[in-house]
Design a protein around this nucleic acid. Structure first.
Lengths: 180, 180
DNA sequence: TCGTCGCTATATCGAGCCGATATATCGAAC
DNA sequence: GTTCGATATATCGGCTCGATATAGCGACGA
């Protein structure tokens, strides 16, 4: 694919959810080529030039590495997680569950912070209080959503729950863990 | 205030919701001083140096200008809106309602995009579908939240609704519009 | 026939933010 | 005494964004 096409396909698949500017895209493509993750080949359609890129095996390795890495909670991790999830089909089920659980744990920490803030901080400002209350509700909704994704993933692939959570597993699930 | 203190107060008030790194904060303070929005004065506590900043009247003007400007929908507007709302108390009620309505309109556009995508795009990928469905639900929740904030703001200050929305206003509210 | 409009396609620039890191002071705790 | 964590400022590299420039292209109408 060439850059413009790449951006168009990305916008079509992830429209609204994740966009990239050309000021990032083209330098990224050159960087990836320098790193050996992609190769480029000049092509033309009529008089219009295109630079057609192809992923290398090193690039596929890097893609999977970036996809399954679980970085520190930072400013950009919300958006990054969305992109990760959009490409979940490329990860093995165990890794999916691990990433979902790690994400949920991070959100639970965040939720606890919001609750503590609503309880402790002497915020008299109505708007700030509304902001925190809405953030709390949104985070709880995100956590419930992740819990459902994890449940659905386990049902599909009969993944063993971590030891600490086995007590909460159903009898059916526990039997499957033993027999599979 | 000095930089470190500024960051601490900001984290305490908006913890989790908006953080700023020192790599942004200190350059920002110098930029603001260059622009005449703040003044700096070197101070010390014992042997420890501090640079104490104070806002100027030009800075207050700039603050309000930044607070009430309604920029194009861009990548960072979600976070920016949260910060705006956190400082809503500094804006007059009419401006608050105007900003809330503009924000809601932007989210309604986004919601329509999500719905169109879920309807039209031939996404066979379960994770991408789940992502869009969750984004749709979250956006609807945000819109309902904004609607409630607008309603509450109108009740508090008896603001006149835009002409196009008067039909939906309650009899009570309509009477108040006429009598106030 | 020509103009111009919007889409395709690549590229670069300045401004700005982040995360990491460096440096140094300080109080408290052990 | 020293070590630890909080206070305090600063800078760097890497990266993104949004704006802008350039140019080929098809389609449509004046």
């Amino acid at each position: 694919m060439h850059g413009y096409q790449l951006n168009r396909e990305l916008s079509e698949q992830l429209g609204g959810l994740s966009r990239v500017s050309y000021g990032s895209l083209y330098p990224s493509l050159r960087r990836l080529e320098r790193q050996g993750a992609i190769t480029s080949e000049p092509g033309t359609t009529g008089a219009r030039r295109k630079t057609v890129y192809a992923i290398t095996s090193e690039g596929e390795r890097l893609f999977l590495e970036l996809l399954e890495e679980t970085p520190q909670e930072n400013q950009t991790e919300d958006a990054r997680f969305r992109v990760r999830l959009a490409f979940f089909r490329y990860l093995p089920p165990e890794t999916r569950v691990r990433l979902l659980e790690r994400r949920r744990a991070a959100l639970e920490t965040r939720l606890a912070d919001f609750k503590a803030h609503l309880r402790d901080a002497d915020t008299t400002d109505d708007y700030q209080r509304a902001l925190f209350e809405h953030a709390r509700a949104g985070t709880e909704s995100d956590i419930a959503w992740l819990t459902e994704l994890i449940r659905s993933e386990r049902l599909k692939y009969e993944i063993t729950a971590p030891v600490g959570e086995r007590r909460r597993a159903s009898a059916t699930l526990r039997r499957k863990e033993h027999t599979s």
